[in-house]
């Protein structure tokens, strides 16, 4: 049996009197894409830095692919890829020179090195620009080059610390496409799938993860699949527009025992399984002669999950839930 990609027990990190990480337990399986969410100062970066052997824990144990991050530091480093929040490229060198530097530093087999460079450069779409100095690259290109570099030595675990921060929405999407492609490639080649450990505070991005941990004030407050976390928070919302809202409302109450609300010319119903409910909805309203013009099914977002789990904002949630993700982004 392979050891888990990441195993953390009772992890504590104190800086003087400040307790950045207050005892967390965590296990990430091989091949998983694991999302680490939380506001700034929640302890995400400290945890990821401990896992990457850059910071030593005050208490507790952390292992990466079965190797202790304190005792087997160099061995862990050889098996992980790192993409930091802040840029770590050498601007006067070309894209390819940066990659070659990394391969030499990690002692990658020289015979395989050029082919591997081409592979990762093509994957992130920088093959044509490989000879240009990095100073001429845009922010998105630089981030893509860093991801390519993080993969050069075929790591078993790839750590991405806020990989999409400061990027435009399109590039953010591209970054996640690469993550999906990594898993697909490994599967196609029958290789062990790479484990991706990613921190982010963009809620929508957590949807790309197999499982998510939500961290707040140094503790993990929730850990599950995105779907399960959303299911915990509440029901789906089905919003319909009809020819006769009054009749629709009446039918939903009497026939289905639901409590619909009419707002801005639309009827909204809260149900546990929105998609599964739609056929029944058509059936019942059709039988009573109410024509449906449009249907929207909205699942609870991870924003809702986040607010539910990070105590301080839960009271403000009702006043204006859409405020919070924006406010958090601005604080950076």
């Amino acid at each position: 049996m392979d050891a888990p990609a990441v195993a953390v027990r009772g992890l504590v990190k104190r800086y003087g009197n400040v307790e950045a990480v207050r005892g967390i337990d965590l296990e990430v399986a091989r091949g998983e894409t694991f999302g680490f969410l939380g506001p700034n100062g929640a302890g995400k970066s400290t945890t990821i830095n401990i896992l990457c052997t850059l910071v030593e824990p005050t208490e507790g144990h952390a292992e990466v692919v079965g190797l202790d991050v304190v005792r087997d530091r160099a061995a862990v480093r050889r098996r992980i890829g790192l993409v930091f929040q802040d840029p770590t490229l050498d601007a006067p060198m070309s894209g390819e020179q940066n990659l070659r530097f990394h391969q030499e530093l990690y002692g990658v087999d020289r015979r395989r090195a050029p082919a591997r460079r081409e592979e990762v450069l093509r994957m992130v779409g920088l093959w044509e620009r490989r000879g240009d100095e990095v100073r001429t690259y845009s922010g998105g290109m630089r981030r893509r080059l860093e991801i390519a570099r993080g993969l050069l030595h075929s790591p078993q675990v790839l750590f991405l610390d806020e990989p999409t921060i400061g990027l435009d929405p399109q590039t953010r999407g591209t970054i996640w496409d690469y993550v999906a492609e990594l898993h697909r490639n490994d599967r196609d080649l029958g290789r062990e799938e790479i484990t991706v450990f990613v921190t982010t505070h963009y809620m929508d991005e957590a949807e790309h993860c197999d499982r998510i941990a939500i961290m707040n004030e140094g503790r993990i407050v929730a850990l599950d699949t995105p779907d399960a976390l959303k299911a915990q928070v509440g029901a789906d919302r089905v919003t319909i527009t009809t020819d006769d809202d009054e009749a629709a409302q009446r039918t939903l109450r009497t026939e289905l025992g639901l409590d619909p609300a009419v707002r801005e010319g639309a009827v909204t119903i809260a149900v546990p399984d929105g998609a599964g409910f739609v056929p029944r909805l058509f059936d019942r309203l059709g039988a009573h002669g109410v024509a449906i013009r449009s249907v929207t099914v909205t699942r609870p977002s991870l924003d809702d999950v986040f607010l539910a789990h990070t105590g301080t904002t839960i009271r403000d949630a009702e006043a204006g839930p859409s405020m919070h993700p924006t406010a958090m982004r601005m604080r950076r």
Binding site: D2, A3, R78, E104, L105, G107, E192
Partner: peptide
């Protein structure tokens, strides 16, 4: 115990040759 499949690892264990390559680059 850990089972690491050697073919999955492109990076050698530490040694003088690895250190010399790093210094050279």
């Amino acid at each position: 115990t850990t089972t690491l499949r050697p073919e999955a690892l492109h990076v050698p264990e530490s040694g003088l040759a690895t250190e010399a390559r790093a210094a050279t680059v």
